[in-house]
């Protein structure tokens, strides 16, 4: 798993770490049942506070991504990922619907909208 913390990022450290662990889980790099490093080990490796990694794990557990067992450690949760992805997709669809409605109101043609989207996604790729 790769975790890269940006000093120039606007996101708080714990959020940067949380998002990257989530990504690793969602793209299958971290498999269901796999053990995560201890909060101290992760904190040491990333040079962040153990209080930060603790918050990351607490959040990930609350969101159903991982399970923590006292004395055993934290593990990637076995299921619910499909559901999660599905709900994320629905969120994107919902926002796109809104965009389509706005575009129609303003008389923006579908082709223009496609071009806009392509450009935006290209910019995003350049940044990351």
């Amino acid at each position: 798993m790769r975790i890269i913390l940006k000093n120039s990022s606007d996101l708080p450290l714990y959020q940067q770490i949380k998002e990257q662990i989530k990504t690793a889980i969602l793209n299958g790099e971290l498999k269901a049942g796999q053990q995560l490093p201890s909060i101290r080990a992760l904190a040491n490796d990333l040079h962040v506070s153990v209080l930060t990694t603790k918050r990351v794990y607490t959040d990930l557990e609350a969101e159903g991504f991982i399970l923590s067992r006292v004395g055993k450690g934290s593990f990637v949760a076995p299921e619910n990922l499909e559901l999660y992805l599905e709900s994320k997709r629905r969120m994107v669809e919902k926002q796109l619907t809104e965009v389509c409605r706005l575009a129609r109101q303003l008389g923006i043609k579908p082709e223009e909208l496609h071009t806009m989207l392509d450009l935006l996604m290209e910019e995003e790729n350049d940044e990351s």
Binding site: P12, L13, Y14, A43, H47, V48, S49, V50, L51, T52
Partner: peptide
């Protein structure tokens, strides 16, 4: 401390000015 501290306490003139999680302070 940048690399290892979890909490930070800042003292000046015999008084505590800050007592906070390091990462929260930096954030």
């Amino acid at each position: 401390l940048d690399k290892v501290a979890d909490m930070l306490i800042l003292i000046d003139g015999g008084k505590i000015l800050l007592n906070e999680e390091k990462d929260t302070l930096l954030d």
